[in-house]
Each structure stands twice: as C-alpha cells, then as structure tokens.
Design a protein around this nucleic acid. Structure first.
Lengths: 213, 213
DNA sequence: TAGATTGTTAATCGATTAACAATC
DNA sequence: TAGATTGTTAATCGATTAACAATC
C-alpha cells in the first residue's frame, strides 16, 4: 500500500466518497475518468483529487486518466474493504437495532460476530443474523471470535465499564455512537465518533445563520 | 447575535461539543471555567477556544474566565436551541424509526410535525408521538405546519422526487441520511449529510493504517 | 493592588489550489 | 507525433497556535 505515513483526516474522509462515486460510475458502465471530470462531477478540484490519490500511489496514466475499475479496487484496498474486520455490536436498543438492520457491514469492511445487550426482553432475540447475548458472555465470545472492533450503541453511563472490558478483551477500534470520550481514557484506541445530536445542532446553526442573512 | 459573517465549518462543528460539555459541567455544579481548563478537559487549546467564541461575541471576563451557565446559554442561542424548528421525517423504515425514537429532537432545536412513509404496513402506525402518513399527504401537511427542515431517511432512488416536492412545499433544510447529493441540485438548500457508511469505512481505514505501523 | 485571564493581533502550520514538466 | 492528463513542486489560502496588551 506504501507511502501512507500519516495521511491527513481531510483526505481519509474523502476516500469513501470517491469509493461510492466510482462504484456508481462502474455500474453505469464507465471505463475511464480523468481527475478533471471526477472533480466536476463531485464538486471538488482536479488538483485536490490528484493530491489525495498520490498519498497512496500512482493509479493513473498520463494522457488517459484513471481506469474506473482499477481505481475503485485500489481505493477499496486502501480502505480495507478487501478483508472483513470482525466486530461486536454492543447495545441492541433502538439505535443498535437500526444500525444492525440498516448498515451493510459486509460491504463496508466489517463482519458482526456478536451482539450484546443487558435488557432481558432482548436477550435471545435474533438481530440481523445474530442472537442477542447478555454482556456476561462478552469475554467468552471475544476469546473465541477475537473481534477487533466494537460498535457502541449504548448510553454514556454504561460506556466506561463496557469499553474497559472490551479493551481488556483485545478490542482495538470503536465505532462510537455514545458520548463517552474513549480517546481520553484509551489514547491508543482507534475511534470513529458518530454524534448524531451534534450533526443535528450543526444543522440548526446553519438554519439560524441562513435566516440572519 | 452579531459578527457571524460566515463562520468556518471547523468552528461550527465544535460548538455542539462545547454545548454538551458545558451542560455536563453545569449539572456537576460548576460555576466558572477558564479557557485553559476547558481546553485541558476537552483536549483542545485555550487559544482555539477563545478564537472560536470570539466569532460570536465576548462572553468572558478578564481575570475570571467564563460563567458556565451564561456560556451554555449563549452557545445554545447561537446554535438556535432556543426555538424549535418545525421538521418532517421522511422515511419510517429501520433508520427512520430509530432516529425518531432515539433522537431527542426537542433538546436539539427541532420539533417533528409529521412523519411520512409509503409502505402500507407502516401508514397509520404511531411513531414517537406522530402518526405515519402516506407521502400523498406531504403537500397538505406542509401547507398546514410549514416545516422548515426535513429528515431524510429514504433510499437514494426515492430521494430526488421527494426532495423536489419538499423544496416546492417550502422546506429549506435537510438532515440527509441518503446518498442523494442535494446541494448539487439545490445549491441554496441548507444540508447536513450523515453518511454512516462513510464513517464506518473511515474506521476501517484507520484500523488498516494502525496495523501497518 | 497583584494575579489571572480574556480578547485580539501576529506567527506558524497545514491543506488546498495553481502551475508545469514528464509522459502516455 | 500531438493532445491530453498525470504526478509533483510551488504558491496561496485558511485554520490553529503563540504572544501579549487590556482589564477584571
């Protein structure tokens, strides 16, 4: 994969968009695309796209552009879509269930190998191909399936104890829907926060700002 | 509200975090806080916090710091939390239901005044205090309740037609969970995208990158 | 008053854009 | 070959950090 010594977050966050766009192009039968066209269609600059891609290698051909299929495949590899990271889902409430049922984990690089919740009425239920287990079984399942990541759909209050147990059980990465600040306690963890409420407040700000124009 | 002539997105995205942090501090009985302490506790720099706040006004007091309660209230006003923006929720599938049940819209500046879906088995059901309506009733409800925003929990394919109808009906802002690029078609719209799949792929990248260290 | 901390200006750092030689 | 487009270096722009006078 080469020369990826600390690629900036700005670049990383654009990779999934490239990946999705190229997939759509591929489905539409596109064979080649230039950075100029990609830029136009995605609302970026051609310079930025070439800079972004050159963080990871040389995927184009002068005078021709990029092969849609090759570039798609390469970005998929960069994103780690070519191997499924085992993950557990912790919290099977409203949000956890929606995430489990809605998110195509397998086409986003993950495989859910266990689902946990403590509510008695949920334990034993089936959820997107998994049986909801009591968190009592967390350590046993981790010992067996070695999940690398955890999807955290639990309230802030339950998070510290559960994250501690997950880290002890070898979990290194978190898709964190809770407001618990994992990195503050485990600086070495890989954390991707999803703060839906923050996003909604940012929308509210933008509405207010657009009204004050 | 004053001097908010185009505040940068980087600043806007930090405001909800300040808001949440200050709320917690308030609950814990904190009365005053300095930018230095705020920075330490939130993992930012004091300079950045003061710069951020000074985009909106002067909320502190030299030699003292900031009143937790006053600052919380001010940031709430900046974010538009003091008045509830009427919004409709479009799409009551897995994701839409979870969002409706999980998100405390009222404490994030919004009020859901209508929920829509086209699946016959959903229409008529109750969802977080709203009755799910057929999208046939969209225009009628908009004429009556004048929603300013729409929460879009629908597949990409249904989005173009529905967004067109919503824009025609006076909706100006979108909390967009779909992959439809609203801004490309309606550049004047206010759009906050939530691409959960992109976030998950970004996590996958970071895991892969941390393994290559 | 003296100490603390703000608001704000200046310096630095990083990301985006522009330019262009290399080359398919 | 000539035209097109890349990979990459240089220039610009914006965001973060540092410094410090103002002042509570």
């Amino acid at each position: 994969m080469a020369k990826n010594e600390s690629v900036s977050m700005s670049v990383i966050r654009r990779l999934p968009r490239y990946y999705r766009f190229l997939y759509d192009e591929m489905q539409n039968g596109a064979v080649r695309i230039s950075s100029r066209e990609l830029a136009e269609r995605m609302g970026l600059t051609a310079s930025q796209i070439r800079q972004d891609l050159n963080c990871f290698g040389e995927f184009g051909q002068q005078g021709y552009g990029y092969s849609v299929q090759t570039l798609y495949k390469k970005i998929g590899e960069i994103l780690g879509m070519d191997e499924l990271t085992p993950a557990v889902l912790v919290g099977a409430g409203n949000l956890g269930r929606a995430v489990a049922q809605h998110m195509p984990f397998e086409t986003r690089g993950f495989r859910i190998v266990g689902v946990f919740d403590d509510a008695p009425q949920l334990i034993g239920q089936s959820l997107a191909g998994n049986t909801v287990r009591s968190t009592d079984e967390l350590e046993a399942l981790c010992a067996e399936r070695h999940p690398v990541a955890a999807v955290l759909c639990i309230p802030k209050e339950s998070a510290p104890a559960l994250v501690a147990r997950l880290v002890d059980a070898g979990v290194k990465a978190f898709w964190n829907f809770s407001h618990f600040d994992i990195l503050r306690v485990y600086p070495q963890a890989v954390v991707e926060n999803v703060h839906l409420g923050d996003s909604l407040m940012a929308l509210s700000y933008q509405i207010a700002a657009s009204e004050n124009e």
